[in-house]
Amino acid sequence: MNASILAAGILTIATMAMAETPVLTVLTYDSFTAEWGPGPAIEKAFEAECGCDLKFVTAGDGAAVLARLKLEGTRSDADVVLGLDTNLTADAAATGLFAPHGQTVATNLPVAFNDPLFLPFDWGWFAFVYDKAKVPTPPKSFEDLAASSLKIVIEDPRSSTPGLGLLMWVKAAYGDRAPEIWAALADNIVTVTPGWSEAYGLFLNGEADMVLSYTTSPAYHLIAEKDDSKAAAAFDEGNYLQIEVAGKLASSPHQELADKFLAFMLTESFQGAIPETNWMYPAVTPKDGLPKGFETLVIPSKSLLLPANEAQALRAPSIEEWRAALAR
């Protein structure tokens, strides 16, 4: 127990020493701040120019971040929330906890995105990832996929953000025909996992031919593992977008600093870290372009995205449709 007393002592002294420098607290998902995530580089770069201490507080994933914020309410210590996606923003806006960011920034998003409360920091297309050797002719649409004998692993929309993204993808592409598509896909689905990591792990272990992930997933294998065997399929009906956003909280006592951080978020030092740590497209392309390897990725011909309010309203009925179609 001596160690913890000592640690508490050091912590107190450290806190006293930093009492003059303001602390900006950012609530985000935990893979953002991991040793191999974008967090460490971003913290260093921002602290070098803000004269402040940047502190990350984490929750499991985007949905967990929002749940945590709702639990904390106006008592939250966080100044900025980073890592919600467009399926969650309507819900987040409805809490009334966010303040307008008041910034206009030119981004490279494939769709127009203007939200007074949230600024995008990265994005990607959902796609089915496969092994080129095992799937020589990938399907070109959901109907193609359903007609094939390919086996897929997907994530549960009730417990994971990619799973919810897939649900919205089918809804955006097929509208009222969604239940029919799900029923046709039922015999292709090997299993439904609680989250992305289980699904991707199953795919890498050869349990399925394709897995629901992102068009940028093959870049990880190519750049980090020097393995060019993976590819993602672009669908003719379009691929659904995931846009990750950040916003500042109205309850924050550091409004100016929070604004500074949001502006910093769309500069080179932040954006340059994104491609090879978060494995997504940065919202502002770095001036040297994307890292080598990203040019090999498939670019879908069409981008789908439901407006935030619509996505929120469709969530419950779509989950029910999905459950009914697959439970048969």
Partner: peptide
């Protein structure tokens, strides 16, 4: 996690998944 992953789909939904969904997604 075991029922859902090995159960092959939403038929294998347990109460705990409902709790997870209610707390994490639906608040």
């Amino acid at each position: 996690a075991i029922p859902l992953t090995l159960g092959g789909g939403p038929r294998a939904t347990t109460l705990e998944l409902g709790i997870y969904q209610a707390l994490r997604f639906d608040y």
